[in-house]
Design a protein around this nucleic acid. Structure first.
Lengths: 211, 211
DNA sequence: CGGCCTTTTGAGTGTGTTCAAATAGGGTGG
DNA sequence: CCACCCTATTTGAACACACTCAAAAGGCCG
């Protein structure tokens, strides 16, 4: 089900000395669980990951999405507040925190990851506090597009439910907003996960403010 | 307008060696501004502080409230993402980051502060993403009560607008929910800022899930 | 082709917003 | 000390946006 390989020098540009183990995960497989000790940190090699948080009443919250090069599972507390699952078949580099803390370069990368994580979480806060459904979906698409490089083609590795749980909306509302954006010519959809953003500037207008 | 005093050994139990300067701020006075270099950290000695974030379209977001003993302005980036203002006349201990980083004990306190800040911000995220107005206001009151010690009396140093901007609601909705909680006997209000929480357990029910 | 899952669409409802006005509280000057 | 003003809060009524429930359409795999 899950394959282990010992780390070896690879072409992955973000990790010089490969101070960890590569593991592969299949779609929807759990990388780590909520409430699990946070003694490891993770970096996406290929594929994509989401972090989720299950709440008492069954509602699910998606904390973020992670793409190749991104670190995740970097916490301050010694427990994971979120669980992490592979969005699709993915290769993840797993690194011991104790090892990471001895590698000065890696340590710097983790610090930057934590810093980015915090500012992302603050942006997310603003998004949730006072944005309309259309603004949320637009912001999301812009964010995804930026993180996938400048191309006007965009692939969404997550389903509508994941988007909804990330944006604090229902799946129906997300779907409706996507339809609306299509109708307004701001996006084109070949299928639900493959988009083209022909008018990025106009789409950013729809966000109304900084992400 | 603002008085400076050199730090001196005081009765404040949280700071042993007072490695900073005490400053007093009047109501609504700015402690630091958004986009200002974050080379100082702050601790509330007396009074209360809010952090705010002004958005492009004029909407305001309140990031958090800080009470005696709480640190604020602890950032990862080298700019403040939020501004900080005194809620009422307050005494603030101002500490140079460079000095703080040399004090092993203080450093530990700042780390814990950053950690708490992050988990608070995640709780805030959950609150904003899927909670009803009543749940938000209830959670807020419970949180405030816990941070002010176990008493069933609660003083709110912030106005309804601050509460609204913190909870992602309008001032009218906050007011209505307060009225509703009164009607349901979950809180008592002598005036808008002075509450009594006679049925804490019942109030926590209204939060529906972890803060 | 048929079954299963995801996404989309539709109709009706409800919660929170908006706009507007009334009330309460606090400070100032007469 | 009281009248007045200014601000903060509360209340009311109508509306709008997103949700809920329900069903149809589209993909994918067997």
């Amino acid at each position: 089900m899950r394959s282990f390989e010992t780390a070896s020098p690879t072409s992955l540009h973000l990790v010089h000395s490969s101070p960890g183990v590569r593991m592969t995960f299949t779609r929807d497989e759990e990388v780590f669980a909520q409430e699990e000790p946070a003694d490891l940190v993770y970096q996406v090699v290929s594929g994509a990951v989401r972090t989720t948080c299950l709440m008492a009443d069954g509602r699910r919250h998606v904390g973020g999405f992670y793409f190749p090069g991104d670190f995740f599972g970097v916490e301050f507390a010694d427990m994971h507040a979120f669980a992490a699952e592979a969005l699709c078949d993915s290769v993840i580099l797993v690194i011991k925190r104790s090892v990471a803390d001895r590698d000065i370069d890696l340590q710097r990368q983790l610090w930057r990851a934590a810093s980015r994580e915090l500012s992302r979480s603050q942006g997310h806060l603003l998004l949730l506090s006072r944005k309309t459904a259309l603004e949320r979906v637009s912001s999301f698409l812009i964010d995804m597009a930026e993180r996938q490089g400048g191309s006007d083609r965009l692939f969404l590795p997550m389903g509508r439910q994941d988007m909804a749980d990330y944006l604090g909306l229902t799946i129906e509302t997300v779907s409706r907003m996507m339809t609306r954006l299509c109708a307004d010519g701001l996006i084109e959809m070949t299928d639900p996960r493959h988009l083209r953003l022909p008018r990025r500037a106009a789409l950013m207008e729809a966000c109304e403010q900084a992400a």
